[in-house]
Design a protein around this nucleic acid. Structure first.
Lengths: 171, 171
DNA sequence: CACTCGTTTCACAAAGTTGTGAAGACAGTG
DNA sequence: CACTGTCTTCACAACTTTGTGAAACGAGTG
Protein backbone atom coordinates (compact mmCIF):
# COMPACT_ATOMS: atom_id res chain seq x y z
CA UNK A 1 0.00 0.00 0.00
CA UNK A 2 1.37 3.39 -0.96
CA UNK A 3 1.05 6.50 1.14
CA UNK A 4 -2.43 7.94 1.13
CA UNK A 5 -3.34 10.25 -1.68
CA UNK A 6 -6.44 12.26 -1.00
CA UNK A 7 -8.49 10.10 -3.35
CA UNK A 8 -8.69 6.94 -1.31
CA UNK A 9 -12.22 6.93 0.12
CA UNK A 10 -11.01 5.38 3.36
CA UNK A 11 -8.45 8.10 3.80
CA UNK A 12 -11.12 10.64 3.00
CA UNK A 13 -13.22 9.24 5.82
CA UNK A 14 -10.25 9.39 8.18
CA UNK A 15 -9.73 13.06 7.47
CA UNK A 16 -13.40 13.97 7.62
CA UNK A 17 -13.97 12.19 10.89
CA UNK A 18 -10.81 13.66 12.37
CA UNK A 19 -11.92 17.14 11.35
CA UNK A 20 -15.27 16.59 13.03
CA UNK A 21 -13.58 15.47 16.23
CA UNK A 22 -11.22 18.43 16.07
CA UNK A 23 -14.22 20.73 15.96
CA UNK A 24 -15.29 19.62 19.41
CA UNK A 25 -11.90 20.12 20.97
CA UNK A 26 -10.13 16.85 20.21
CA UNK A 27 -6.47 17.23 19.14
CA UNK A 28 -6.29 17.12 15.36
CA UNK A 29 -3.35 14.83 14.85
CA UNK A 30 -4.50 12.43 17.55
CA UNK A 31 -7.82 12.10 15.77
CA UNK A 32 -6.14 11.42 12.43
CA UNK A 33 -4.02 8.70 13.97
CA UNK A 34 -6.97 7.23 15.80
CA UNK A 35 -9.08 6.81 12.70
CA UNK A 36 -6.17 5.64 10.61
CA UNK A 37 -5.73 2.74 13.00
CA UNK A 38 -9.46 2.22 13.28
CA UNK A 39 -9.84 1.77 9.54
CA UNK A 40 -6.99 -0.71 9.24
CA UNK A 41 -7.94 -4.36 9.46
CA UNK A 42 -4.61 -5.17 11.12
CA UNK A 43 -2.56 -3.29 13.70
CA UNK A 44 -0.17 -0.67 12.31
CA UNK A 45 3.32 0.36 13.28
CA UNK A 46 4.20 3.98 13.97
CA UNK A 47 6.03 4.13 10.65
CA UNK A 48 2.97 2.86 8.77
CA UNK A 49 0.75 5.42 10.45
CA UNK A 50 3.13 8.22 9.55
CA UNK A 51 3.37 6.98 5.98
CA UNK A 52 -0.38 6.78 5.50
CA UNK A 53 -0.92 10.26 6.84
CA UNK A 54 2.21 11.78 5.36
CA UNK A 55 3.37 13.16 8.69
CA UNK A 56 6.58 12.99 10.66
CA UNK A 57 7.48 10.35 13.22
CA UNK A 58 7.45 13.07 15.84
CA UNK A 59 3.82 13.85 15.15
CA UNK A 60 2.90 10.18 15.40
CA UNK A 61 4.82 9.87 18.63
CA UNK A 62 2.92 12.70 20.27
CA UNK A 63 -0.43 11.47 19.04
CA UNK A 64 -0.05 7.87 20.19
CA UNK A 65 1.15 9.02 23.58
CA UNK A 66 -2.00 11.09 23.91
CA UNK A 67 -4.29 8.32 22.72
CA UNK A 68 -2.82 5.51 24.81
CA UNK A 69 -3.19 7.65 27.94
CA UNK A 70 -6.96 7.37 27.61
CA UNK A 71 -6.93 3.79 26.41
CA UNK A 72 -8.19 4.78 22.99
CA UNK A 73 -5.23 3.03 21.41
CA UNK A 74 -3.32 -0.03 22.53
CA UNK A 75 0.40 -0.38 22.00
CA UNK A 76 1.95 -3.79 21.70
CA UNK A 77 5.55 -4.72 20.88
CA UNK A 78 6.16 -6.74 17.75
CA UNK A 79 7.91 -10.04 18.58
CA UNK A 80 11.52 -10.26 17.34
CA UNK A 81 11.42 -6.62 16.26
CA UNK A 82 12.04 -3.29 17.87
CA UNK A 83 8.83 -1.89 16.52
CA UNK A 84 5.59 -1.43 18.30
CA UNK A 85 2.20 -2.02 16.79
CA UNK A 86 -0.90 0.00 17.53
CA UNK A 87 -4.44 -1.29 17.46
CA UNK A 88 -7.89 -0.35 18.71
CA UNK A 89 -8.89 -1.83 22.04
CA UNK A 90 -11.58 -4.50 21.85
CA UNK A 91 -13.98 -2.79 24.18
CA UNK A 92 -15.38 0.37 22.65
CA UNK A 93 -13.30 3.34 23.66
CA UNK A 94 -16.02 5.86 22.85
CA UNK A 95 -18.35 4.50 25.49
CA UNK A 96 -15.74 4.79 28.21
CA UNK A 97 -14.48 8.11 26.96
CA UNK A 98 -17.90 9.69 27.06
CA UNK A 99 -19.10 8.23 30.33
CA UNK A 100 -15.90 8.48 32.32
CA UNK A 101 -14.80 11.93 31.37
CA UNK A 102 -14.49 14.40 34.21
CA UNK A 103 -15.70 17.36 32.21
CA UNK A 104 -19.20 17.30 33.68
CA UNK A 105 -17.80 17.47 37.19
CA UNK A 106 -15.75 20.47 36.12
CA UNK A 107 -18.88 22.19 34.86
CA UNK A 108 -20.77 21.36 38.02
CA UNK A 109 -18.01 22.54 40.32
CA UNK A 110 -17.58 25.78 38.43
CA UNK A 111 -21.32 26.43 38.48
CA UNK A 112 -21.51 25.66 42.19
CA UNK A 113 -18.75 28.18 42.74
CA UNK A 114 -20.89 30.69 40.90
CA UNK A 115 -23.88 30.08 43.12
CA UNK A 116 -21.72 30.68 46.16
CA UNK A 117 -20.19 33.81 44.67
CA UNK A 118 -23.68 35.15 44.03
CA UNK A 119 -24.70 34.53 47.66
CA UNK A 120 -27.06 31.67 46.94
CA UNK A 121 -29.93 31.06 44.54
CA UNK A 122 -32.18 33.83 45.82
CA UNK A 123 -31.36 36.55 43.33
CA UNK A 124 -32.24 36.38 39.63
CA UNK A 125 -28.60 35.78 38.76
CA UNK A 126 -28.12 33.25 41.54
CA UNK A 127 -31.20 31.35 40.46
CA UNK A 128 -30.05 31.18 36.84
CA UNK A 129 -26.68 29.81 37.79
CA UNK A 130 -28.20 27.35 40.27
CA UNK A 131 -30.49 26.01 37.60
CA UNK A 132 -27.60 25.64 35.19
CA UNK A 133 -25.72 23.73 37.87
CA UNK A 134 -28.69 21.43 38.40
CA UNK A 135 -28.96 20.83 34.69
CA UNK A 136 -25.33 19.78 34.52
CA UNK A 137 -25.86 17.45 37.46
CA UNK A 138 -28.83 15.98 35.67
CA UNK A 139 -26.82 15.46 32.48
CA UNK A 140 -24.03 13.79 34.39
CA UNK A 141 -26.47 11.35 35.96
CA UNK A 142 -27.94 10.61 32.57
CA UNK A 143 -24.53 10.05 31.06
CA UNK A 144 -23.53 7.78 33.90
CA UNK A 145 -26.38 5.43 33.07
CA UNK A 146 -25.86 5.74 29.35
CA UNK A 147 -23.09 3.16 29.22
CA UNK A 148 -25.29 0.55 30.80
CA UNK A 149 -28.16 1.20 28.39
CA UNK A 150 -25.76 1.05 25.47
CA UNK A 151 -24.59 -2.40 26.41
CA UNK A 152 -28.17 -3.62 26.45
CA UNK A 153 -28.85 -2.08 23.08
CA UNK A 154 -25.64 -3.47 21.72
CA UNK A 155 -26.54 -6.99 22.76
CA UNK A 156 -29.90 -6.62 21.03
CA UNK A 157 -28.53 -5.39 17.72
CA UNK A 158 -25.92 -8.07 17.44
CA UNK A 159 -22.66 -6.18 17.79
CA UNK A 160 -21.33 -8.78 20.19
CA UNK A 161 -18.21 -10.57 19.11
CA UNK A 162 -17.84 -14.35 19.42
CA UNK A 163 -17.31 -15.33 23.03
CA UNK A 164 -18.34 -11.97 24.42
CA UNK A 165 -21.21 -11.84 26.87
CA UNK A 166 -23.60 -8.94 27.23
CA UNK A 167 -23.81 -9.51 30.96
CA UNK A 168 -20.07 -9.29 31.55
CA UNK A 169 -18.88 -6.52 29.28
CA UNK A 170 -15.32 -6.01 30.41
CA UNK A 171 -12.83 -6.25 33.23
CA UNK B 1 -19.53 49.46 39.82
CA UNK B 2 -15.93 49.64 38.65
CA UNK B 3 -14.48 47.47 35.96
CA UNK B 4 -13.76 43.97 37.13
CA UNK B 5 -10.50 43.35 38.86
CA UNK B 6 -9.62 39.70 39.16
CA UNK B 7 -10.56 39.64 42.83
CA UNK B 8 -14.32 39.85 42.53
CA UNK B 9 -15.55 36.31 43.17
CA UNK B 10 -18.32 36.71 40.63
CA UNK B 11 -15.88 37.77 37.96
CA UNK B 12 -13.69 34.87 38.95
CA UNK B 13 -16.59 32.54 38.32
CA UNK B 14 -17.25 34.14 34.95
CA UNK B 15 -13.69 33.54 33.84
CA UNK B 16 -13.50 30.01 35.18
CA UNK B 17 -16.76 28.96 33.61
CA UNK B 18 -15.82 30.58 30.33
CA UNK B 19 -12.50 28.76 30.34
CA UNK B 20 -14.27 25.48 30.88
CA UNK B 21 -16.62 26.15 28.00
CA UNK B 22 -13.70 27.15 25.81
CA UNK B 23 -12.09 23.81 26.50
CA UNK B 24 -14.93 22.02 24.78
CA UNK B 25 -14.83 24.16 21.68
CA UNK B 26 -16.99 27.14 22.66
CA UNK B 27 -15.62 30.52 21.53
CA UNK B 28 -13.78 32.13 24.43
CA UNK B 29 -15.08 35.65 24.24
CA UNK B 30 -18.64 34.54 23.64
CA UNK B 31 -18.46 32.45 26.79
CA UNK B 32 -17.11 35.36 28.82
CA UNK B 33 -19.91 37.61 27.61
CA UNK B 34 -22.51 34.92 28.22
CA UNK B 35 -21.58 34.39 31.84
CA UNK B 36 -21.12 38.08 32.48
CA UNK B 37 -24.74 38.62 31.51
CA UNK B 38 -25.82 35.50 33.33
CA UNK B 39 -24.37 36.72 36.62
CA UNK B 40 -25.93 40.16 36.40
CA UNK B 41 -29.28 40.58 38.11
CA UNK B 42 -30.35 43.11 35.50
CA UNK B 43 -29.78 43.24 31.75
CA UNK B 44 -26.51 44.86 30.64
CA UNK B 45 -25.63 47.15 27.77
CA UNK B 46 -22.78 46.36 25.41
CA UNK B 47 -20.70 49.08 27.04
CA UNK B 48 -21.25 47.60 30.49
CA UNK B 49 -20.24 44.17 29.28
CA UNK B 50 -17.08 45.54 27.71
CA UNK B 51 -16.25 47.48 30.86
CA UNK B 52 -16.71 44.51 33.17
CA UNK B 53 -14.52 42.31 31.03
CA UNK B 54 -12.05 44.98 30.05
CA UNK B 55 -12.41 44.28 26.33
CA UNK B 56 -13.12 46.41 23.30
CA UNK B 57 -16.55 47.18 21.89
CA UNK B 58 -15.59 45.21 18.79
CA UNK B 59 -15.06 42.09 20.83
CA UNK B 60 -18.42 42.49 22.52
CA UNK B 61 -20.09 43.06 19.19
CA UNK B 62 -18.77 39.81 17.74
CA UNK B 63 -19.63 37.84 20.84
CA UNK B 64 -23.23 39.01 21.14
CA UNK B 65 -23.82 38.38 17.46
CA UNK B 66 -22.65 34.81 17.95
CA UNK B 67 -24.74 34.30 21.08
CA UNK B 68 -27.97 35.80 19.80
CA UNK B 69 -27.80 33.55 16.72
CA UNK B 70 -28.40 30.55 18.97
CA UNK B 71 -30.83 32.32 21.25
CA UNK B 72 -28.44 32.12 24.18
CA UNK B 73 -28.71 35.87 24.60
CA UNK B 74 -31.61 38.20 23.96
CA UNK B 75 -31.11 41.72 22.70
CA UNK B 76 -33.64 44.39 23.49
CA UNK B 77 -33.52 48.11 22.74
CA UNK B 78 -33.55 50.52 25.65
CA UNK B 79 -36.53 52.89 25.42
CA UNK B 80 -35.60 56.52 24.68
CA UNK B 81 -31.98 55.52 24.17
CA UNK B 82 -29.87 54.26 21.32
CA UNK B 83 -28.42 51.50 23.43
CA UNK B 84 -29.40 47.89 23.45
CA UNK B 85 -29.59 45.73 26.51
CA UNK B 86 -28.70 42.08 26.66
CA UNK B 87 -30.23 39.53 28.96
CA UNK B 88 -30.56 35.77 29.31
CA UNK B 89 -33.67 34.23 27.83
CA UNK B 90 -36.16 32.95 30.38
CA UNK B 91 -36.28 29.41 29.11
CA UNK B 92 -33.03 27.56 29.76
CA UNK B 93 -30.80 27.92 26.78
CA UNK B 94 -28.61 24.97 27.73
CA UNK B 95 -31.43 22.50 27.29
CA UNK B 96 -32.18 23.65 23.77
CA UNK B 97 -28.56 24.09 22.86
CA UNK B 98 -27.61 20.61 23.87
CA UNK B 99 -30.56 18.77 22.45
CA UNK B 100 -30.89 20.68 19.20
CA UNK B 101 -27.30 20.79 18.11
CA UNK B 102 -26.52 19.12 14.80
CA UNK B 103 -23.13 17.81 15.84
CA UNK B 104 -24.35 14.26 16.41
CA UNK B 105 -25.74 14.09 12.92
CA UNK B 106 -22.37 15.17 11.61
CA UNK B 107 -20.68 12.36 13.52
CA UNK B 108 -23.22 9.85 12.31
CA UNK B 109 -22.96 10.92 8.69
CA UNK B 110 -19.18 10.84 8.75
CA UNK B 111 -19.17 7.39 10.35
CA UNK B 112 -21.70 6.09 7.83
CA UNK B 113 -19.41 7.33 5.07
CA UNK B 114 -16.65 5.30 6.67
CA UNK B 115 -18.70 2.12 6.66
CA UNK B 116 -19.39 2.59 2.97
CA UNK B 117 -15.75 3.33 2.21
CA UNK B 118 -14.78 0.13 3.98
CA UNK B 119 -17.25 -1.91 1.89
CA UNK B 120 -19.66 -2.60 4.70
CA UNK B 121 -19.40 -3.92 8.24
CA UNK B 122 -17.97 -7.34 7.35
CA UNK B 123 -14.28 -6.66 7.89
CA UNK B 124 -12.73 -5.95 11.28
CA UNK B 125 -12.30 -2.30 10.34
CA UNK B 126 -15.79 -2.03 8.88
CA UNK B 127 -17.32 -3.57 11.94
CA UNK B 128 -15.52 -1.17 14.26
CA UNK B 129 -16.68 1.84 12.34
CA UNK B 130 -20.24 0.51 12.07
CA UNK B 131 -20.39 0.02 15.79
CA UNK B 132 -19.12 3.52 16.41
CA UNK B 133 -21.81 4.83 14.05
CA UNK B 134 -24.48 2.91 15.95
CA UNK B 135 -23.19 4.28 19.22
CA UNK B 136 -23.50 7.83 17.95
CA UNK B 137 -27.03 7.09 16.76
CA UNK B 138 -27.81 5.76 20.21
CA UNK B 139 -26.39 8.83 21.88
CA UNK B 140 -28.37 11.11 19.63
CA UNK B 141 -31.58 9.31 20.52
CA UNK B 142 -30.75 9.57 24.19
CA UNK B 143 -30.00 13.25 23.91
CA UNK B 144 -33.22 13.86 22.03
CA UNK B 145 -35.22 12.52 24.94
CA UNK B 146 -33.08 14.24 27.54
CA UNK B 147 -34.83 17.57 27.23
CA UNK B 148 -38.15 16.01 28.03
CA UNK B 149 -36.80 14.22 31.09
CA UNK B 150 -35.17 17.43 32.27
CA UNK B 151 -38.46 19.28 32.25
CA UNK B 152 -39.98 16.61 34.45
CA UNK B 153 -37.07 16.74 36.85
CA UNK B 154 -37.17 20.50 36.88
CA UNK B 155 -40.82 20.55 37.82
CA UNK B 156 -40.10 18.18 40.70
CA UNK B 157 -37.21 20.18 42.15
CA UNK B 158 -39.06 23.44 42.09
CA UNK B 159 -37.22 25.43 39.44
CA UNK B 160 -40.49 26.50 37.90
CA UNK B 161 -41.09 30.21 37.79
CA UNK B 162 -44.44 31.76 38.73
CA UNK B 163 -47.04 31.11 36.08
CA UNK B 164 -45.00 28.48 34.28
CA UNK B 165 -46.48 25.05 33.79
CA UNK B 166 -44.48 21.86 33.60
CA UNK B 167 -46.84 20.44 30.98
CA UNK B 168 -46.50 23.37 28.57
CA UNK B 169 -42.84 24.31 28.71
CA UNK B 170 -42.49 26.73 25.84
CA UNK B 171 -43.93 28.09 22.61
C1' DC C 1 -31.07 67.54 7.37
C1' DA C 2 -26.86 67.89 9.92
C1' DC C 3 -25.25 66.08 14.45
C1' DT C 4 -24.33 62.76 17.99
C1' DC C 5 -23.81 58.59 20.15
C1' DG C 6 -23.65 53.74 19.94
C1' DT C 7 -22.69 49.68 17.08
C1' DT C 8 -20.50 47.14 13.39
C1' DT C 9 -16.89 46.09 10.11
C1' DC C 10 -12.21 45.52 8.53
C1' DA C 11 -7.21 45.17 8.26
C1' DC C 12 -3.70 44.15 11.21
C1' DA C 13 -1.01 42.57 15.21
C1' DA C 14 -0.37 39.60 19.16
C1' DA C 15 -0.71 35.16 20.94
C1' DG C 16 -1.34 30.42 20.88
C1' DT C 17 -1.21 25.97 18.53
C1' DT C 18 0.64 22.45 15.88
C1' DG C 19 3.85 19.81 13.18
C1' DT C 20 8.76 19.50 11.45
C1' DG C 21 13.69 18.38 11.41
C1' DA C 22 17.43 17.01 13.91
C1' DA C 23 19.60 15.46 17.78
C1' DG C 24 19.30 12.32 21.65
C1' DA C 25 17.92 8.16 24.18
C1' DC C 26 17.05 3.44 24.44
C1' DA C 27 16.67 -1.51 23.50
C1' DG C 28 17.85 -5.52 21.11
C1' DT C 29 21.68 -7.93 18.49
C1' DG C 30 25.98 -9.76 16.86
C1' DC D 1 30.06 -3.66 24.32
C1' DA D 2 29.69 -1.23 20.06
C1' DC D 3 26.15 -1.08 16.40
C1' DT D 4 21.68 -0.45 14.36
C1' DG D 5 17.13 0.72 14.01
C1' DT D 6 13.15 2.76 16.40
C1' DC D 7 11.02 5.98 19.28
C1' DT D 8 11.15 10.43 21.87
C1' DT D 9 12.37 15.16 22.90
C1' DC D 10 13.25 19.91 21.81
C1' DA D 11 13.76 24.37 19.49
C1' DC D 12 11.85 26.50 15.77
C1' DA D 13 8.75 27.87 11.95
C1' DA D 14 4.26 27.94 9.75
C1' DC D 15 -0.35 28.49 10.48
C1' DT D 16 -4.57 29.69 12.85
C1' DT D 17 -7.15 32.12 15.99
C1' DT D 18 -8.54 36.02 18.44
C1' DG D 19 -9.00 40.74 19.87
C1' DT D 20 -7.73 45.67 18.86
C1' DG D 21 -7.99 50.39 16.84
C1' DA D 22 -9.92 53.10 13.52
C1' DA D 23 -13.11 54.11 10.24
C1' DA D 24 -17.76 53.49 8.48
C1' DC D 25 -22.50 53.01 9.38
C1' DG D 26 -27.08 54.16 11.05
C1' DA D 27 -30.80 55.46 14.11
C1' DG D 28 -32.70 58.87 16.84
C1' DT D 29 -32.85 64.17 17.77
C1' DG D 30 -32.93 69.10 17.57
Amino acid sequence: MAAADGHDPVHLFVERMALTFAEVGFPRMAARVLFTVMTADDPLTAAEIGERLGVSAAAVSGAVRYLTQFGMLVREPVPRSRRDRYRMPEDPWYEGTITKTAIYKTFIDAAEGGVVALNGPDTPAGERVAEMRDFFIFVQEEIDSLGERWRVRRAQTGHLRPGESAAAPSG
